[in-house]
Amino acid sequence: MSHHIVEFKNVSFCYPDGTQALKDISFRITHGESVGIIGANGAGKSTLLMHLNGYLMPTSGTVNIGDVYLTKKTQQEIRRKVGIVFQNSDDQLFMPTVYEDVAFGPLNLGLDEAAVRERVDFALNLVNGLELKNKPPHHLSCGQKSAVAIASVIAMEPDILAMDEPAANLDPRSRRLLINLLKTFEHSKIIASHDLDLIMDVCRRCIVVRDGAVAADGPVMEILTDKTLLEENHLELPLSLQR
């Protein structure tokens, strides 16, 4: 299946206030690849992720997701293909109970009730969250919220999974569980994070973004061992490589 590709071609994006957030970015991610996006604060990682499902439209250049070019018309179709997990789970979980939240996406896809229930159970089970289903999100811990947020995206059965700082706010054990979980997914994965150890564990390839442009793109072990490159981008060697 070669159609789960993500291709950015000369993408630039300028915020209404004039900030040039992306400058001529090009890359191609093929089916099943797991890619880490790293870079300093404000380098443009989040802006880049927001282009993946058409929340932001490139000022110039093209975004191609699974052979569909991103336009106003194809937004809905692209949102089905790309599931985004946001940094702050409170923003992601907006329904009164966990179950309703995970069901929100599938219901919007127009599935019938049996199919929705099946997907919700499957997704919650996958993140070990089945016993949380009747709880309201504001009574969950951060780790539980993050698990449910992932389930809510998995229930949409996206081809491509994008995450913004998935391990921020998690305690080490929840973080480890998350890493193990991510390793089992066969989706194409795009993970923006400062947690380089997580990137090293989960991803094969790594893209370094600096000032809205691609500063480096290559195999994860090559990039994460390049001390000079990392330090130029306000990063350091992953902790596990510092000894």
Partner: peptide
């Protein structure tokens, strides 16, 4: 700002105007 992020999250999951319920 939060409202904007939430709206973004809703759009990502196919929100089209009605809150569906089971």
């Amino acid at each position: 700002e939060r409202a904007e992020r939430i709206y973004h999250a809703m759009l990502s999951r196919g929100f089209q105007g009605d809150m569906p319920t089971l």
